[in-house]
Amino acid sequence: MSSIENIRLGKLDERGRFSVVKPDRLTRICMALLKAAGASEDEAQAVATGCVNANLAGHDSHGVIAIPSYIDSVKAGDIVPGAEWTIERESPTTAVIDGHWGFGFHVNTKAMALAIEKAKTANVAACTVFRQSHVGRLAAYPLMAANAGMIGLAAADSGNLRKYVAPFGGREARLGTNPISIAVPSNLKAPFLLDMATSAVAAGKLDLAIARGEEIPKGWLIDAEGRPTTDPRDYCKGGVLLPLGGTEGYKGSGLAAIVELLCGLLTGPGFGVEPSGRENFGCFMAVFNVAAFRPLDKFKKDVADFARHLKSAAPSEGSSGVFYPGEIGYLCEQVRTANGIEVDNVTWEKLRTLACNYGLSCELDLA
């Protein structure tokens, strides 16, 4: 395993707790399982590709580990395959989109595509989305804008579902992990991309640690009594995540509150928790056409020059050097595309069980 993967993910487990699967095979498996659960071809493609792309970039918490839970949500009626998204309100520069409980990957992709089309003529556009399921790795949507020569911004919250994060100074959850992502076009091989939770870590990282039987770093989680813990299982016993920032966690807490306003209140569902509610992930997306401000080619060159300027800084003690935002994910993607994706055996067995239940074990070579 390369040093790039080690920076991001830690060394490959030597006790045989992972299966290594090629990305195209993993995508095919996930698509088949989702279609068997009722997803259309387009929906299955969006979800499976989104999850595998997250794995490729090193975001295993948003990868195929989530596929079984998505299928469970379909069975429970919380996700409605084939749901027709509708535009509830629209102007030349804005849109409010109702996902009607559809797959978030699918709904959000269409919403960002609409914002990009609006920005081609209006130069600045924004969309809000509500009543959709989990949207996966948030970076996927701003990257669509960057590929179109625009700056893309996205933020997401968990609607009125269970909250995971304590506001700074508290020990009870009031906030979601509330990620923010911004992608900028450039001449770089790797995208110039920010993709971050406003909590110390994404909630899926805890599921990943539990599946892998690993401890978590200090500063991620407090238990039900408000005490720091390195046991991810404490999360399931009433523990809560901490906001980004450690002793300066008021910064992450403040960012999370703003995301809640943009994605919960501006979209309409509001705040708080409805225990019997359905999945209702809210999103806010904005697109800025670079050409409206300055020539795109010159801007892209300047972004690349700026990234190289950042990387020219001498490394601090114990550091592997400076990476600009988005670079490590890109380097990880190159390694995993060539060598395969590590899927923990707990998740692999869940995929095998689903294949068996749907009568797809032989077709997918998962017998």
Rank of each mutant, 00 (worst) to 15 (best):
K118W: 07
D24L: 15
G249V: 08
D223I: 12
V201S: 06
E349C: 06
D98M: 05
T121Y: 09
I7N: 00
C127M: 15
T247P: 10
T109S: 12
N339E: 15
G159C: 10
V273H: 10
P167H: 00
N280L: 07
G104F: 02
E260L: 12
P23T: 09
A37R: 09
I87A: 01
I116K: 02
G226W: 11
C127R: 08
A292W: 12
V129A: 08
R162Q: 11
V124H: 14
A76T: 15
K22T: 13
G152T: 07
L193M: 12
Y141K: 10
A203S: 15
L33A: 10
F168K: 03
R233P: 00
A313E: 11
Q45A: 11
E225F: 11
E84P: 01
A355Y: 00
D72P: 05
G58S: 07
I216G: 02
G58D: 07
T267G: 06
C356K: 08
N339I: 02
S316V: 13
V52K: 09
I151Y: 04
I328T: 09
D157Y: 02
V129P: 00
E43G: 03
A202K: 07
E248L: 12
N108W: 00
F299N: 02
A32V: 04
C51N: 14
G245Q: 08
S276M: 11
I79D: 03
T353W: 07
I258N: 11
L255S: 12
V335G: 00
V287A: 06
D72F: 01
F281R: 01
A125W: 08
S158H: 01
T86L: 04
M150G: 09
N53M: 09
R171S: 02
L354Q: 00
L206A: 04
V165Q: 03
N160Q: 12
V335S: 07
R308G: 12
G252S: 03
G136V: 05
I97D: 01
V52R: 09
P275H: 14
L366V: 13
K237L: 07
G245S: 11
T109V: 08
G321A: 14
M112N: 05
F323Q: 15
W348K: 05
A139P: 03
F281G: 04
C356M: 03
L26I: 14
N55G: 08
A224S: 15
R212K: 10
H100P: 01
K251C: 05
A313V: 14
R162Y: 05
D157L: 04
K163Y: 01
G340W: 07
N147S: 11
V21F: 08
P191H: 03
V21I: 15
S199M: 00
I67P: 03
D13C: 12
C236M: 13
G38L: 04
G329I: 03
R15P: 00
V240T: 11
Y141I: 07
G63N: 00
I222T: 07
N53Y: 09
I216S: 04
P92F: 09
G249F: 07
A256G: 14
F168S: 06
Y164H: 06
V201D: 04
T198C: 12
K205D: 05
S73R: 14
P315W: 01
L56V: 08
G10V: 13
A113Q: 15
T247W: 11
A54E: 06
A367R: 10
